[in-house]
Design a protein around this nucleic acid. Structure first.
Lengths: 341, 341
DNA sequence: AATTGTTTTGCAAACGCTTGCAGCGCAGAC
DNA sequence: GTCTGCGCTGCAAGCGTTTGCAAAACAATT
């Protein structure tokens, strides 16, 4: 023996105190029904007295799997991600799973670290809700044999379910709604990681505007995801001299920042300028004016992810499935008839 | 041997492929410098090729401790908690610690479960940011030998540092500021778990109002913590027939909900009624009108917690320390001269 | 060539738990 | 009194790491 024999609290200590073997203690603690009631209560008493808490690492190791659901998100601060997280957490707890969440802050090295963490933890399932991910890393997850679900990134793969929202449709609805109100000069405000050249949202915006009114002059601005980022992008917009009658934002969180800055500059919403968001977070109802936006059913998404990741039907799947969700426009007070120019 | 010999990926597989022993692989992976460079790269190559990821449970078990910082919060949705979480996360990552966060949703059985989880994980340190906690549970944490920091709950104990904000002072500043503006009829809006009979904030509010203007008639309302909760409390307030000239809210998050409802009812802020919050979350600057509130330095609190929980100086402390923070009033646009009644 | 010293490796014992299997004690049957 | 069956319990192997210690490999010195 190499070290001092357990000052640490372990099964052995409980077993000794209860005068039984560790196996018995283990069985009691796991509610196996083969233990005599009297023994059982003796063990429970001992555990209680010793303030014993099973070592979860040892347990996972012995069992060969952990009861943990892993979640990776880009930005916990954005209520959109938070809502999905909360749904997943609720579902997980309902099944006795614990949850470990990692926040990447849109940083790819953080994403890498988070994936390593989840794999290292041998999570029972993994949900990845980030806006960008290297192909290599996707392969790593796919190869890890961990059932995973990706939101809005990558394509279906072995062991991986893909869930995405039809942004194209959402943006189209928004643009044609605004167009019907007479808006021609529109700006799009995104955050950096949605504005890569590959980004569907950016392209869709440009295309939609172009189709609805070929003479329109769409412009694009960006800041980091968040209230400040929205504000910053709006400032840039104003400083550029461009005077849109409508501003479409990539998400509600940024839209709130955008509205703040526009208001600051004396612009009235929606009299002088209309603003729209995306996601329909709670805050969209609570800001002033309340925000016209596109509803994304986060609870539903959460449930879908959960079912696909820890679903009981989960045989090792050779090919993932893809699920597409259809978003709806929600009209509130931040949009109105286009201002006369 | 009882089971099939490792289809699973482990040190052994890597060792075999690299033609070395598991010890060597382990040493390579832990960057111990005693490994010959050629061996080292051979091992690294094998690990890479096998897509190997060390089992963190086994690692923790063998090392006898985990590199995990545990965080328990009442309500991740409230940006106040989120900000502390983010600071802690940043600090932790800077030191190569991982973070596990648990959300109690103000439910005591969830709090219990979370504590069990953290102890079971043998976290390296534990931060508990909840508004209420049973004495028994505090003892459990204290007895677990895990260095912990509690925010705003309990009293210093063995292994536990206590951090609290001087709410009394914050509320006093707010009330006397409002009093100077001529406010007499004030309401206080809290959430359920801050309004227990023991709650300092509630008492302080009543006392302060009473001291400033003995003739005043303070009233108290409550809802669940959150935007909806604030709104709901405000509705109750309005329905009660009470017409305060100022509403103090227990936190900014609820205040935003309160403002929403007041606005809905046609009341202008601050012309008809002033509103104040507490915490000074980002959103307070972004709502309309921007919110007068009491600043609580969440970053500073995060850092303090971190240092006390994983600080290098941490000898097993027999007696915890207590740290009290002094809050400042931040005046913005949601408060003004009391309306004539 | 033998000896000594230095790297570099491998062996094997933990870490705290689960679990297949075997064994024990005791009741009932003969 | 021996045997069978059954309900409980204990033994011990195994989960994938780390790590003290000792052996092996190699270099340097005599």
């Amino acid at each position: 023996m190499r070290k001092r024999r357990s000052l640490a609290m372990n099964l052995d200590a409980v077993a000794q105190r209860a005068g039984v073997s560790t196996s018995t203690v283990s069985r009691v603690l796991n509610n196996l029904e083969i233990v005599k009631t009297s023994t059982r209560s003796r063990v429970l008493k001992a555990a209680e007295e010793l303030n014993y808490h099973p070592n979860l690492h040892a347990r996972s190791l012995a069992r060969g799997k952990s009861r943990i659901l892993g979640i990776i998100v880009s930005n916990m601060e954005n209520p959109f991600f938070l809502d999905i997280y909360r749904t997943l957490e609720a579902d997980a707890h309902a099944q006795g799973l614990e949850v470990v969440v990692a926040n990447t802050d849109y940083r790819s090295e953080q994403l890498l670290a988070s994936v390593q963490l989840m794999i290292g933890l041998r999570v029972a399932g993994l949900a990845v809700i980030v806006s960008e991910m290297e192909e290599h890393l996707i392969q790593t997850v796919s190869g890890s044999r961990i059932p995973a679900a990706f939101y809005d990134v990558g394509t279906p793969q072995k062991n991986i379910t893909n869930i995405r929202v039809d942004y194209r449709k959402g943006i189209k609805k928004t643009v044609s709604y605004l167009n019907a109100l007479g808006h021609k000069r529109m700006a799009f405000v995104g955050h950096h990681s949605t504005l890569g050249p590959i980004s569907e949202r950016r392209k869709t915006f440009l295309e939609s505007v172009h189709r609805c009114s070929p003479s329109a002059e769409p412009r694009i601005f960006a800041g980091p995801d968040g209230l400040d980022g929205g504000r910053q992008a709006a400032r840039e917009l104003l400083e550029s001299g461009f005077r849109p009658t409508a501003v479409l934002c990539v998400n509600d969180f940024m839209a709130v920042g955008v509205m703040r800055e526009l208001r600051e500059e004396g612009l009235q919403i929606p009299r002088d300028v209309s603003v729209t968001g995306f996601d329909n977070i709670k805050l969209a109802e609570f800001c002033s004016p309340s925000l016209t936006t596109v509803h994304i059913p986060r609870e539903q998404i959460g449930h879908i992810i959960f079912d696909n990741v820890v679903g009981n039907d989960r045989e090792e799947r050779d090919v993932g499935r893809e699920i597409v969700i259809d978003p709806e426009l929600v009209v509130r007070d931040s949009t109105g008839i286009a201002a006369k120019s």
